[in-house]
Design a binder for these strands. Structure first.
Lengths: 337, 337
DNA sequence: TTGAAAGCGCTACCAA
DNA sequence: TTGGTAGCGCTTTCAA
C-alpha cells in the first residue's frame, strides 16, 4: 500500500493488452453491446483482465466520443433557503440519479447571469434546472441551448424567455396569506421582508401577491416590514410596533413568524387579539408555540415529478416551452390568526 | 429563434477557420498562454470570431487532454441532516468554487460502498470529500486513488483506512451534553435517539459519548430514548415519562428537544424542575421557548477552512493521511437545564 | 467473431 | 509569431 497513485490509471488499452484482444472487443464486452456477438471465453478473459487491473472507464472520454453527456446541472443557492427547499433539492437529485443522470451542483458565486451560463455550458449539460436564485437571462438560455442543452428549466419566481418554464409562483403564497388574514377580518396587514440578502427573490413576489390580494378588498392596507433573523431586530421591531398600527402580520415564513411572535408577546402584544400572526412552510415547530402558529402550507412539486419532467423534455426537446404551475398554497389556521 | 439547437455546437476549429488562423493559435489566445507571444491584431481576430460564434470550450475535452480534472466530488446525504449541516455544505461548495474547483454532488442511492466508489471514479475527481453518510471502505478509497484522486477525505464519525481523515467526532457532542447535565447535578439521564433512518450515523456516536461521560461519574445512568419527529411520538413518550425515572434528557438536537420539551410541559412535567432538557445546534428558535432551551453549541470547521485543506492535500498528496479534529462542542446553559 | 482505425475537442510540443 | 500535428480514452463503423 506504498504509493498506489504512482502507476498510471489503467485504460481500456491496458485491459485489451492483458486480455490479448483489441480495444474494440473490450468495449463490446464491458458495455454488453448487443449488436455484436462475442464468444464466452473472450468475454471472460476481458472481464478478468478488467477486474485485475481495477479498470474504470473514463466518463469524460466516453461523453466526448458520444457527443453528449447525461449531466443535469443544478445551479446552487447562494443562501440557504429553508428546510422545505433543501428537502426538495435532495429529492430531485435522488430522482435524477435514478434516471441515470449525473447531477452537478454548480455554485455560481459572483457570476452574473451570462457569465454563469457560459461557465455551465462548458460542462455541456444535457439539462439545466435553475432554481431561480441566479438570474438567468434569455441570452443565457440561448447560450446553453447552443451548447447542446436539451432542456433549460427555470423553477422559480421569474419566467425566462426561451426556457421551459416551470413557474413556481411565489406570489401565490403572499396572496393566500393575505386572503386568509382578510377573511379573519383583518385590514391593516404587515408583510415581513427578511433583510438577509438573497431572499428578495422570494420575498418580493410574496409581497406583490399580498398587495394583489389586498387590492381586491376595500379598506385593506399592506405594509412591508423589514426584519432580520436576530432577536435584536425582532425586539426593535416589537418596540416600535404600536406606531405601525397593524392588526395582522404575514411574517414571510414560520421561522421569522416564530421570532416575531415571541418578540411581540414579550412586548405585551396579545396574539391573536391585538395582532394576527401568520407564517409559511407549515413547520412542525410552529405547533409547539402558544398560541399555535397559523401558517401557509406550501405544496411543492415533488422532486420525482420534476425529474420525470426533465427527462421528458430531454427526450423530446421539440415541444413548446411549457409553463407549469408547480406550487399550491393553502392557509392552515391554528391559533395565532 | 426557430430551432437554434439545430446547428452543431461550434468548436475551436470553427473559430480558427473563421479567424483564418490555426487551432493552436485559438487555444493560445483564449487561454492567454504566457509562453507564447501572439500579435495584437491576431488576438483581436480570434476574440471576435469566438464572440461571433458564441464559442464555448468543451470541459471534457480539455480535461481529457490535460489528464486530470478539477472536480471535487461530494457524495450527498440520503437524508436531510439538519440546518447546521446544510449550511456547512453550502459554505464548502462556495469556497471550493472560489478555488476554481468544480463541485459535483453525487447522490449514491442504493449503491454500496465499492459500487459507489467505482461510480465516482468514472468522473476522475481530483478529490472526494465524503461527509460520512455513505460507508467508504478502505477498498473504495484504494479505487479512488488508483483512478487519480489526489485527496480522499472523510468527514464524519468514522475513520477510514487510507483516506485523509478529517474526523468529526460526534461523540464529543454527547460527551459534552452529559458532562453539562452531570454538572447540574443530574444523574438519571435520557438520550433521545431519533427514529428517522439515516440519523444513526450521528446519534449512535453521540450516545457512545454520553455513555463515556456518565461512566466517569459514580451513580450516573444513561438511558437511550427512541423518538420520532412527530407530535404523536413526543406525546406518547411524555405519557410514559413517569415510568422512565429520569431527571434529565439530552434530546439529540434542538429540534427534537423543542418537540419533547413541549410534550413534557403539556403532560405537566416541570422543566427544569423535574427534568432538565438539553438540545444541540444552538438554533435561534430555542431561545424563543420558555424556559429558554439549553443547548450544545457545535463549532464545525468552516467550509472555507475545509476547502483550503482540500486544496492543500490536492497540491501535496504525498503527506501522511492526517487526522484532524474539526469539531468543538460547548454547552450553552439557558433555562431548561 | 474480432481487429484496425477514425475521430470526438482540446492543448502543447516542435518546426517553420 | 504562427501552424502542423500527436494524442488524451473511448466507441463504432468497416473489413477481415
Amino acid at each position: 500500500m506504498g504509493r498506489p497513485a504512482e502507476r498510471p490509471v489503467p485504460t481500456s488499452a491496458d485491459v485489451a493488452r492483458l486480455a490479448g484482444v483489441s480495444r474494440a472487443t473490450v468495449s463490446y464486452v464491458l458495455n454488453n453491446t448487443s449488436a455484436v456477438r462475442i464468444s464466452e471465453p473472450t468475454r471472460r478473459k476481458v472481464r478478468e483482465a478488467a477486474e485485475e487491473l481495477a479498470y474504470i472507464p473514463h466518463a469524460a472520454a466516453r461523453s466526448l466520443r458520444a457527443g453528449h453527456t447525461r449531466i443535469v446541472l443544478l445551479p446552487t443557492a447562494h443562501v440557504p433557503i429553508g428546510p422545505l427547499h433543501s428537502r426538495f433539492l435532495n429529492e430531485l437529485q435522488w430522482a435524477l440519479r435514478r434516471l441515470d443522470y449525473t447531477v452537478v451542483q454548480y455554485g455560481s458565486l459572483g457570476l452574473d447571469g451570462d457569465e454563469a451560463a457560459r461557465a455551465w455550458a462548458e460542462l455541456r449539460p444535457v439539462a439545466v434546472v435553475s432554481l431561480g436564485e441566479i438570474a438567468l437571462t434569455p441570452h443565457g438560455v440561448e447560450i446553453l441551448k447552443r451548447s447542446g442543452a436539451k432542456a433549460v428549466i427555470t423553477l422559480g419566481p421569474r419566467r425566462v424567455e426561451g426556457a421551459h418554464a416551470l413557474v413556481m409562483d411565489q406570489r401565490e403564497i403572499g396572496n393566500c396569506a393575505v386572503d386568509h388574514l382578510l377573511e379573519r377580518g383583518r385590514r391593516r396587514i404587515g408583510v415581513v421582508m427578511p433583510e438577509e440578502p438573497g431572499l428578495e427573490l422570494f420575498s418580493e413576489p410574496r409581497l406583490a401577491g399580498a398587495r394583489a390580494a389586498a387590492a381586491s378588498s376595500t379598506g385593506a392596507r399592506v405594509e412591508p416590514v423589514p426584519l432580520s433573523y436576530t432577536e435584536e431586530s425582532a425586539g426593535a421591531l416589537a418596540a416600535r410596533w404600536g406606531g405601525l398600527d397593524l392588526d395582522a402580520v404575514y411574517a414571510y415564513n414560520d421561522e421569522y413568524a416564530m421570532l416575531l411572535m415571541r418578540a411581540l408577546q414579550d412586548a405585551g402584544v396579545d396574539i391573536p387579539g391585538d395582532v394576527a400572526v401568520l407564517g409559511a412552510d407549515n413547520l412542525l415547530l410552529g405547533k409547539l408555540l402558544r398560541p399555535r402558529l397559523s401558517t401557509v402550507r406550501i405544496d411543492l412539486v415533488t422532486g420525482q415529478r420534476l425529474a420525470a419532467l426533465v427527462d421528458r423534455v430531454v427526450r423530446d426537446p421539440g415541444g413548446e416551452p411549457e409553463r407549469h404551475d408547480l406550487m399550491g398554497a393553502l392557509a392552515v389556521r391554528r391559533e395565532s390568526s
